[in-house]
Design a protein around this nucleic acid. Structure first.
Lengths: 224, 224
DNA sequence: CGCCTCTTTGAGCTCAATCAAGGTGTGTGG
DNA sequence: CCACACACCTTGATTGAGCTCAAAGAGGCG
């Protein structure tokens, strides 16, 4: 459980303090595609992604799911709605590959977390990052699809602490499409092209970026 | 100054307490299009929109500005970055029509606001609304442009306390386009159509929604 | 071994972008 | 006070990026 100490949110906390914060905490082990939280349900717990990843999604007008966020280890899910009078999960969360999640009851938040000013601001920092990312995506609305894919890959890579070039989560083309509001086919066409050019490599839904500079170029380039 | 008491964020606060929170506060009167905060600059103050409106924008890869948020009275600008070590404004803010803004130094936030747990969570509530709105916009990515415009108008109307049907801010077609990542011409085509059908009415950049139900229909309708 | 998910490729079509041109109102400097 | 620039709105014609539809191969799993 001391793996928590590594996460930025808990910087400056001792093991004892953490233990107290995680009172009644329970480790949830999820299988690929398993539902963690259902949108619309009463939110009586929140928690932290320990390993693997979860995707947060909401249905669009066609009934398909749009992915609004990828939560990787260290990310806190649903904490910022805990302070509301009777919170409801605003999105659904599904595991991407085998994942683990430390689930903490809402009462613990209200009793122990709420008063930790520093912690609250750390969480607010995460939120702020998320808004930033959503805003950047908005500025890319008029950019070609290739730029959007490029940004998404880099955004996920950046979140990952180490500077590995392999994305830390299994990501299907469909998920990329659902996250960008594009069609699977279009995503495939662009990424196949990149594969041929040796810019990326895919094995078993593990995407590896070989030439980061080329991808960045892709974001601004007008040409093919 | 007691106009602050009406805003939801300050629910439950007495006039005296507010006066203390707003120590060293200064009322900024902005003219149309005037810059309030410049993206990238050191953030040494934050504040509350008193009247009028401000648009928050960021440049897109083409150098044009994309509007990421419309701030109406009661909205708090830049508060959630105040707790960061050396904050930088993440977006630029421009007045939309004559507006007033209560500007408060960062030190006051650190000294007086930060410790007011309730207040912090009220602000987090605003943030959370903003994320929700950005996420909804993301789910509309694949929807036709008319649905996006319809949602934008309704979103702005909803924020407005009273159930007036006139948008509380001067909104040009260009601004709508910049907010949705669309072209001005396309926005005009759709809105002209609505005007002809008597669904909306525009006078001097004041948009009035006459048939709310028709607009909502527009969001789901497949037909014209 | 049939079913399901994921990936791939091709063909055709459509929505909205772009380009072009013109109209109106407002502020501004000569 | 006029003319000129500028911001905003409008309409039409053309074009293209990306969507839809269709068909098929490749694992993986019960």
């Amino acid at each position: 459980m001391s793996e928590l100490l590594n996460f930025k949110v808990f910087e400056g906390y001792s093991a004892d303090q953490l233990l107290d914060l995680c009172t009644s905490g329970e480790i949830i082990v999820s299988k690929h595609k398993q539902l963690l939280y259902q949108m619309g349900q009463k939110a009586d717990s929140f928690g932290i992604v320990l390993s693997g990843a979860y995707k947060l999604s909401r249905p669009n007008p066609n009934g398909e799911d749009t992915i609004v966020h990828f939560s990787t280890p260290g990310d806190i899910i649903a904490a910022f709605i805990m302070a509301q009078p009777s919170p409801i999960y605003p999105v659904s969360s599904y595991a991407m590959g085998p994942s683990r999640f430390l689930k903490i009851p809402r009462e613990v938040f209200l009793q122990k977390w709420k008063s930790q000013t520093d912690l609250i601001f750390k969480i607010q920092g995460l939120l702020s990052t998320r808004i930033g990312s959503l805003q950047t995506q908005k500025t890319l609305l008029k950019a070609p699809l290739s730029a959007k894919i490029a940004f998404l890959l880099i955004d996920i890579l950046n979140k990952y602490e180490g500077d590995e070039s392999t994305l830390p989560l299994p990501l299907t083309r469909k998920e990329i499409a659902d996250s960008l509001g594009a069609s699977v086919e279009s995503v495939i066409r662009i990424m196949s092209d990149w594969s041929k050019k040796g810019i990326i490599e895919t094995q078993d839904q593990q995407i590896k970026v070989l030439k980061l500079d080329k991808i960045i170029e892709e974001m601004s380039a007008t040409s093919s």
